[in-house]
Nucleic acid binder design. Structure first.
Lengths: 162, 162
DNA sequence: GTTTTTGGTTGCAATATGAAACCGTATACT
DNA sequence: AGTATACGGTTTCATATTGCAACCAAAAAC
C-alpha cells in the first residue's frame, strides 16, 4: 500500500515509481504490451480483483500511461491502450523480465520470451552501454548529484561500490 | 499492499516484481547503489517509517538481493549491501530513471545523473538492441509465448501493437 | 559515567487490497 | 422480438500493510 506519495521527491526514480510502482501496474502494462486491450483480458489473465483493476487502470490513465479508445473492432465498448509514454516503459519491462529470467526463473522456465520481431531470436540483454555502444561493467556506471540537488549524508563516490 | 503473491506465476516479470515490486524496494536499492549502507542512511534519505524499512530490508535479504555484512569502518554495527543479484537490477533502475527524466521530471530537473564513470558523461539511454548492437524501434520488439506456456485468450501477435 | 545515536520493536490508526454480491448496458441466442 | 448471458464496472466488508509515535537496549560520543 502506498499512503505516502513519491511525487514531491525530485528523484526521477521515485517519480517514475509514483506512476508505475503499484503492485499491479507493471503487470498491466506488460499485458497491454502483449496485446491485452479489454477489461476482462487484464482481469482474467492477472487474477486481479475487479475493483483493484478499475483503480489501477484509472491511475494509469490519469498518469498518461494508458488511454481509453473506442473498440478497434466496432463494438460499443472502449479499450485500454498504451500511450507513447506507456510504450516507452518497455525498457523497464524488458530489464525486469531478463533479470527475472536469470535470477528467479520458474522451474518450468519463463512463460514469455522477448524477441527481435523480424528474426524471432531472443532479444539481447538490455544493458548500460558507453557512447560507442559497447556494453559496460556495472562498476563503471556512476551516479552524480545534479547541480543544486541536496547532498547525501553518506560518502557517495566510493572507489568501487560493486 | 500485496496480499496475493506473484511467486506462483510463471512470468518472469511477475516473479521479479515479487522481489522488488514493493513500494520502497527499488528506492532502497537505488540508495544502496548510490552508496547507502546503514539503516539510518536509508531511513533519513527516504523518509520511510522505521518498521517498514526493517520489513523491506528483511525481504530484500531473504530474496538474496541484499545482505548484512560487518561494518566497513570497524564499528560494531552491520551494514546492508547489494549482492550480485541485487547489483544486476541496475538496468531496471537505470531504465526507470531515464523514463522518469523524460516523462515525469521534476520542475527543477532530476536530482541524480547516471553517468559513464570514466568520462563523467551522461549515460546513453538504455534501450533494446539487435544482435549487432543497433538500437531498435519498440515496435520491432516481439513477445512470444514459450513452449508449454498457456495460451493467452486474446490475439497475441497483432501486426503492429505499437 | 552520563548523554546521544543507532537500530530496531511494539501498538494503534489510516489506507489499500481481495472477494463476493450486485447492477445497468450491450451482445448473443433462439 | 424476447430472453439469457457477458461485460464493465461499483459497493460492501473482512483482511493486510503502511505510517506514526512511543519505547528500548546496546553502542558511541562526550
Amino acid at each position: 500500500m502506498k499512503t505516502k506519495s513519491f511525487s514531491d521527491m525530485q528523484c526521477s526514480i521515485a517519480r517514475a515509481l509514483d506512476h508505475v510502482g503499484s503492485w499491479w501496474s507493471l503487470l498491466i502494462i506488460r499485458d497491454a504490451m502483449m496485446g491485452a486491450r479489454r477489461f476482462k483480458h487484464f482481469q482474467e489473465n492477472l487474477g486481479i480483483a475487479k475493483n483493484t483493476l478499475t483503480s489501477r487502470l484509472t491511475d494509469l490513465i490519469e498518469g498518461g500511461i494508458m488511454e481509453k479508445v473506442p473498440a478497434s473492432d466496432g463494438y460499443a465498448h472502449e479499450e485500454y491502450v498504451l500511450t507513447e509514454r506507456g510504450r516507452e516503459l518497455a525498457p523497464v519491462i524488458i530489464a525486469l523480465a531478463q533479470w527475472g529470467d536469470k535470477w528467479v526463473a520458474h522451474e518450468k522456465g519463463p512463460s514469455t520470451v522477448i524477441t527481435v520481431r523480424e528474426s524471432g531470436e531472443k532479444l539481447p540483454r538490455i544493458w548500460p552501454r558507453r557512447e560507442d555502444g559497447e556494453p559496460m561493467a556495472l562498476k563503471d556506471v556512476g551516479m552524480r548529484r545534479a547541480n543544486g540537488a541536496p547532498q547525501k549524508i553518506w560518502h557517495e563516490e566510493k572507489e568501487d561500490p560493486s
